[in-house]
Design a protein around this nucleic acid. Sequence first.
DNA 1: CTGTTAGCGCGTTCAA
DNA 2: TTGAACGCGCTAACAG
Lengths: 337, 337
Amino acid sequence: MENVNLKKLAQTLNLSVSTVSKALQDSHEISQETKRRVLDLAKSLNYVPNPYASSLRRKKSKTIGVVIPEVTDSFFSLAIKGIESIVQPKGYHTLIYLTYESLAREQTILQEFQSGRVDGVIMSLSGETNRIGHLETLQAKGIPIVLFDRIFDEATMAQITTNDFESGYQATRHLIEQGCRRVAFLSLSDSLSISNQRLEGYKRALAESQIAAQDDLIVNGSREISQELIRTLLQSPQRPDGLLASVEKLAITAYQLCEELNLTIPDAVKIIAFSNLETASLLNPSLTTITQPAFDMGKAAAIALFRNLEKTYFDPQKESIVLPSLLVCRNSTRRCN
Amino acid sequence: MENVNLKKLAQTLNLSVSTVSKALQDSHEISQETKRRVLDLAKSLNYVPNPYASSLRRKKSKTIGVVIPEVTDSFFSLAIKGIESIVQPKGYHTLIYLTYESLAREQTILQEFQSGRVDGVIMSLSGETNRIGHLETLQAKGIPIVLFDRIFDEATMAQITTNDFESGYQATRHLIEQGCRRVAFLSLSDSLSISNQRLEGYKRALAESQIAAQDDLIVNGSREISQELIRTLLQSPQRPDGLLASVEKLAITAYQLCEELNLTIPDAVKIIAFSNLETASLLNPSLTTITQPAFDMGKAAAIALFRNLEKTYFDPQKESIVLPSLLVCRNSTRRCN
DNA sequence: CTGTTAGCGCGTTCAA
DNA sequence: TTGAACGCGCTAACAG
């Protein structure tokens, strides 16, 4: 790989490798004079310690694994920034893995983590994930996991969410207030915590307005499957006049379909999307979004993880942190809580 | 870290560590019978090799560093997916680093790479980067670098771009055809290859239409600085009637300002943005974008990188790959080349 | 076909 | 205050 290592430094200074090592770690058992000499040479030779050798020896990789379903999603990319804002200053590195909503990939990735490649994991579950044996196995090996956004209620670990019930409720109420009477709910899967919570909020809002929830207005499935289901829905004689998309990608799909079917937004159909697209409400005044504090959620997740990493003994414990999300429409921003 | 390693496997099977190691690597010098026994045990004990020990020994990390200015940008997040589509199947891992447009951070990151943490680097330069000594130093140590999008012309390495001159030209022509006579050009910095190319195209298009380019219509600076410059520009009596934003973030800033200043888009001001936002033209029919093949650029970068990694001897060579970008407006898509 | 030996670069005894 | 020796887990050269 490279060339300048402890040995080389030691040789040119006529010191032993271990002395140099200690000097670089600012050990108290090394004289100031020696430390200075070592540091000077290290700097002038541009010495960079080999992280893999160090990991091997210390049994710590100073690396965090981030496992998310997507990166081309405003929520997740913002969350990454939040994570990095904590992780980087600590001198840790970030390994990013994408599951593309597949449970199998998620399992493969976590399996690989058993190698000790990462010291801890921050993740948001795939749409397919309906059991978490792979998470538990990893935790049992002493590697802490923090979940954010797409959590798993029964799991014994830190979990960062927004109040999804409340935001689902508020969003639905907003649509009803705008005159919608047939509101559809679009979800990626029925095992996703966030979708289910939001769905409950949706149902509550409908009930309060004496509108009967209809099963055929609740769409469940991967993006490809949903696309066809939504298309059918929008073509049916009793098509919905409002859509609540619990995931950004589904909102995009819905938009494309409305366009394709010549349904004008918001006259024919109103849409509310869970999305952090900075541009969304700018680009289209009629668009309403539920905006989550993605950056802060990433930060909170990283902070919770470090709390566990810094313990001498890691003992998985459930811990829930709930941050508020915002309902943003052109002229107003309302806090959902 | 973990517990089950080669030694343990070897002990329980009464074999030597090296035999087990070779068996796991499917070496031809191990009998089928032994291989089977080893693989069976490995699977049942859930053995996962320690990547750091292996890296240390082999002097290969099977890890790629991706260095980009931002992740909350549709272009870069899509490019990441393109990169992963090549890197993952090869069994390589992806370490992502964000420069936030800072040269200093970029230098720190590359400096760290001298440790051998990564086998190769794929990067897009920060807005501040006007020299590439840090890249050359790294390459000189045998670590290949591939640049994409924000390249550095004089650099001796593979570079993946779109035809920025052409797309700047087409975009400007499009604005002129829509009736714009005072078109402003928004850029992050004057050291950015893409901005300069696009600027040249812009100038050419103006010249062809007998419109004199005006320096005060060319805005240069970080997002914060630009924001004030653009605001001033939009408030001046001879404000522009068209904006060409060479970076997504600047387009967002421009949008926000138009809104704030009550300038209706597209009546008062027309905007063309270099952006890959899937939703952009959907959300607002009046929006025109230059869409780059971000996913394919990521792929191409990764492929070029592996070409270098797989060489027995790495010898930096310049290599340019140019992919076409698209000008997308509501009813038409035109290829820029 | 299998085992022995010797490191990769670093950090941690323990002895001087 | 410094250094010698050992080993983290794995791979590679060389014997047998």
